[in-house]
């Protein structure tokens, strides 16, 4: 029991930190709901994974890739804003997800089940989280410039589409890993809330991005601790903790 909690805690710390860090870009890019939508896009993958008994993160990741690819392709073919496309794909995924997910597993798919994390899962989560943060760290300035002025970015030879794709893939990895922590319904909140709190408290990008990472970690530690004490699922408690930080940030 104790060792299970330790695995859960370590996984949540790494994934939560990475989610917060990526979230700092999502807010400045005005994509605040994309993380939410992608969480839902993962649902059919989670459902199939539960149905056929393989790792939910892998199932989620495959469907996230499909979803991102589909949005990517459709974006060039219609004049509709990305948000509408994401919206359509998001409800389609939800519908499919509800149909394929075994009924008694549905709740875990939606709000996460961190107690099912193995040692191998923990190691994979930690390594991938560090990798994703390292990659995004290296292109962070380019992503910020692209988000404040496309013209400025292009005139400085920044390939906006390429970096946006890298960013979306990074989000896909973190959402897939985070599915176990917070579930498909709540993973979006783990991306957005720590970043929103950090934004309120920061005067520059350094404080903002690393602050978001720190608050992501703190939310997870607090959430998992509360879960250990109360016996409630960790996912909702983690989100609850992050919203508390957000509420506190509003007073500064």
């Amino acid at each position: 029991m104790a060792i299970d909690y330790l695995y859960s805690l370590i996984t949540a710390i790494f994934v939560g930190g990475a989610a917060g860090y990526l979230g700092s870009l999502m807010i400045t890019k005005r994509m605040a709901l994309v993380g939410d939508a992608l969480g839902h896009v993962a649902l059919p993958g989670i459902g199939l994974a539960l149905l056929w008994g393989f790792n939910v993160s892998y199932g989620a990741f495959i469907f996230l890739l499909l979803g991102i690819l589909l949005i990517w392709l459709l974006e060039g073919r219609t004049d509709l804003p990305t948000e509408s496309l994401v919206g359509v794909i998001f409800v389609l995924s939800l519908a499919i997800g509800f149909l394929v997910t075994p009924e008694h597993e549905l709740l875990h798919a939606l709000v996460g089940d961190i107690s099912s994390v193995s040692l191998l899962d923990t190691i994979i989560s930690a390594v991938l989280s560090i990798g994703v943060v390292a990659i995004i760290y290296s292109i962070y300035p380019k992503l910020i410039i692209s988000s404040i002025s496309e013209d400025l970015a292009v005139s400085n030879n920044i390939k906006i589409k390429k970096y946006n794709l890298i960013y979306l893939l990074a989000i896909a990895v973190i959402v897939a890993l985070g599915i176990k922590v917070a579930g498909s319904l709540l993973i979006g909140a783990l991306v957005i809330t720590p970043a929103a709190a950090s934004k309120k408290l920061s005067r520059n990008l350094f404080q903002y991005s690393w602050g978001a990472l720190a608050l992501g970690i703190l939310s997870c530690v607090l959430g998992v601790a509360l879960s250990a004490i109360t016996g409630f699922a960790a996912g909702p408690l983690i989100i609850f903790a992050s919203v508390i930080f957000f509420a506190i940030s509003l007073f500064f």
């Binding site: 400045t28 005005r30 910020i144 988000s147 404040i148 002025s149 400025l152 934004k199 920061s202 005067r203 520059n204 990008l205 404080q207 903002y208």
Partner: peptide, 9 residues
């Protein structure tokens, strides 16, 4: 420039 005035940059 700067669609978002609140950006911590």
């Amino acid at each position: 420039f700067l669609p978002d005035k609140g950006i911590p940059l």
